[in-house]
Amino acid sequence: MLDRIRNSLRKAGMNPAPDSPDALLADYGLDSLMTAMAILELQDEFGVKIPQKAVTPENFESLSSLAALLGSLGAGKPE
């Protein structure tokens, strides 16, 4: 799942995206504009809708926190 998240972030413009799951995404350029693009890519990739109230600095802090968020939205669960 981390690879898919990393890939989505790259498509959103994060070049390079971090290898470490706990690296701070803000250090890799994640600003409000890139967050908007990242949400679109993650929604497309995982087939979930990320509600606005979930768009918090904590949820978008790292690859790990994004994985947790997506998991809570049902991503990665078998059909």
Binding site: S32, L33, T35, I39, Q52
Partner: peptide, 30 residues
């Protein structure tokens, strides 16, 4: 925050004059 434009768009409240840099407009097109 720019990302909060989603609230306006989802609610059908996007009206009037909107101003941004070209990157904002690329994101808004998406």
């Amino acid at each position: 925050r720019f990302i909060d434009v989603r609230e306006l768009l989802d609610a059908g409240e996007a009206r009037g004059m909107w101003s941004g840099v070209p990157s904002h407009w690329e994101a808004l097109l998406r």
